[in-house]
Design a protein around this nucleic acid. Structure first.
Lengths: 146, 146
DNA sequence: ATTTTTGCAAAAGGTTTGCATTGAC
DNA sequence: GTCAATGCAAACCTTTTGCAAAAAT
């Protein structure tokens, strides 16, 4: 996401009544520039956060605030770590169990069929789902072949 | 799972070369009797664990050992908590966001199609997936209607 | 003026570790 | 006898909290 898109996002959120302090903008910026979900530790190490002297507690508070607005989503992917990412368009992840790399994938339309089946058979109304794939990325597959 | 099935499980695991100490058996027993994934805290509160004076550290070590064998799976469902459950037959969960109840569901055959598509389009070889559904259970739906 | 956000430092909570002891094969 | 597993307590790490100061509306 480039700077222009980021500004658009900020103004969109502001219009929705979401108050964006400098700290919150900094956290959003870090998440927007990242190509993968980040841990709190990752965010605390980010340039902008350090330059602007954003406190640890503030980063955590910004993350949980942004999570309640829905713009940031908390994931548990590789194990212990809580990972945060911008929740702009619903997607899933391919997590390489060898090199830990995380890629995004955008398939899930078939799940709505299953979700309807679930509601029909169990009475459970599905509101959202989490779907993550674990395996070996192309690079690691090739390396292992050698 | 009843006691007979549990014994069968123990002997099966032993035959696989998985060493089952009393502590590990106790942890497995707790997980086998539970109808839902359990946190480490849940396990530490279990009768057998207390009766047999299994130490906290031992429970954690048993869990991570059993996880490496594949018989126990670590899940992150409702949020912060790490939840453990027996990984006997692959299934997914319906997690009620209102009452936090967790039910099991056994549908996922359609996912293999998607997994093949993923490999074809991205080169990523899917080995396993995590799929969890969040929403409202039948009971909470009915209560909210009133 | 009132409410929200922040920094700081301390607390909390869950999990892991070092080491000596015990137990299994 | 050797290696693996355990108990205990302390350490560790990440996240949260209380409170006073600063910032925003």
């Amino acid at each position: 996401m480039n700077s222009r898109e980021l500004k658009q996002l900020f103004s969109l959120l502001s219009k929705q009544g979401i108050r964006l302090s400098l700290s919150r903008r900094a956290v959003l910026t870090v998440l927007a520039k990242a190509r993968r979900p980040l841990s709190a530790a990752d965010i605390l190490k980010a340039k902008i956060i350090i330059q602007e002297n954003v406190n640890r507690a503030t980063v955590y508070r910004a993350l949980s605030f942004l999570e309640t607005t829905g713009i940031v989503e908390l994931l548990y992917l590789a194990g212990d770590e809580r990972l945060y990412h911008l929740n702009l368009n619903h997607h899933h992840h391919l997590i390489c169990t060898s090199c830990q790399k995380i890629e995004a994938v955008h398939i899930c339309n078939q799940l709505s069929v299953q979700e309807n089946e679930i509601q029909a058979s169990t009475g459970f109304k599905v509101q959202r789902h989490i779907l993550e794939f674990y395996g070996l990325c192309r690079d690691c597959l090739e390396k292992n072949k050698i």
